[in-house]
């Protein structure tokens, strides 16, 4: 069960300004059914002042509460003022949100931004950028903005705020890259086609052989044993132990604690070392 503040519960059970404004001055729609939450925000602007705001939200309690609180906040504000509202302002108005639910306040800010852009007749740059998280359709520009605005410091926080990385998790490395670059104030390099970390099998075999010859074989030879590389299949490295090692009771420990550790340190940290079947 989530720990919701009384304000969240109040806005959820008694939402303010539900509905749609007919002929709105600005309309912002964000999210989708498949993502699990969506918000349609309509605003009425008179003489540069937001006089009315209404919402329709599909989503959990914090999504509904964020939308409701947002409509109350913007009413009576000038468009310029409203444009400065951050997701943290929305969360603060609710007395805070559980960290896993911060993306609900981000959705509120995005809808407001979209509604104001619609009112001003401009197209948001958010639609551009490189899609980083394919599960939730989150772009690098959105992620960079969230990192800067909310001072995010980990991939987990990025997921809590933007949902990016919350599905299959394949974009985690890319999120880390974007985070590091943004935190260091550097421009985010476009995604590299071939990551340096990903070795081809041939490169892997060469590196494994080097480490075996340079470090592992001399150590085992001192104890009257030896080791040979049999096969490399993906991350699985098959080896065969020779001499004293072959009959040694501790050979499994040798493989896991010594050989695998060394190879992981010096080649790639996902390797799994197995002994060849006799």
């Amino acid at each position: 069960m989530w720990d919701y503040t009384d304000k969240v519960k109040d806005h959820f059970l008694h939402p303010r300004n539900v509905g749609e404004i007919e002929n709105p001055s600005g309309l912002g729609e964000v999210g989708s059914l498949s993502c699990g939450d969506a918000l349609k925000l309509s605003i009425k602007v008179e003489d540069g002042i937001i006089t009315e705001a209404r919402f329709k939200t599909f989503g959990c309690a914090s999504a509904i509460a964020s939308s409701s609180a947002l409509t109350e906040m913007v009413k009576g504000m000038s468009v310029e003022e409203a444009a400065k509202i951050t997701n943290q302002d929305i969360a603060n108005a609710l007395g805070g949100l559980p960290k896993e639910k911060m993306h609900c306040s981000v959705m509120g800010r995005e809808a407001l931004e979209a509604a104001i852009a619609n009112y001003r007749g401009i197209i948001l740059p958010m639609a551009q950028g490189e899609i980083v998280c394919e599960c939730f359709g989150v772009t690098d520009l959105e992620i960079i903005q969230a990192i800067k605005e909310s001072n995010l410091r980990s991939v987990e926080e990025i997921t809590n705020f933007t949902k990016a990385g919350g599905g299959c998790g394949k974009c985690e490395d890319r999120l880390r890259e974007i985070l590091q670059a943004t935190v260091n104030g550097l421009p985010v390099e476009p995604r590299k086609e071939e990551k340096v970390r990903r070795l081809t099998t041939l490169q892997k075999i060469k590196k494994i052989e080097e480490v075996l010859a340079r470090e592992i074989q001399p150590t085992l030879q001192k104890d009257g044993g030896n080791i040979e590389l049999v096969d490399v299949d993906g991350d699985f490295v098959t080896v065969s132990l020779r001499g004293a090692c072959a009959s040694c009771q501790a050979s499994r420990t040798t493989l896991k604690e010594y050989v695998e550790k060394k190879l992981r340190e010096q080649v790639i940290d996902t390797l799994i070392v197995e002994e060849a079947k006799p």
Binding site: G36, E100, F136, K163
Partner: peptide, 21 residues
């Protein structure tokens, strides 16, 4: 639903059954 689990995706059982989002 996704929101009750702490993950962001709905139940693996319903997804395996092809229940629409």
């Amino acid at each position: 639903s996704a929101c009750t689990s702490g993950s962001l995706e709905p139940s693996h059982v319903l997804r395996a059954m092809g229940v629409p989002f």
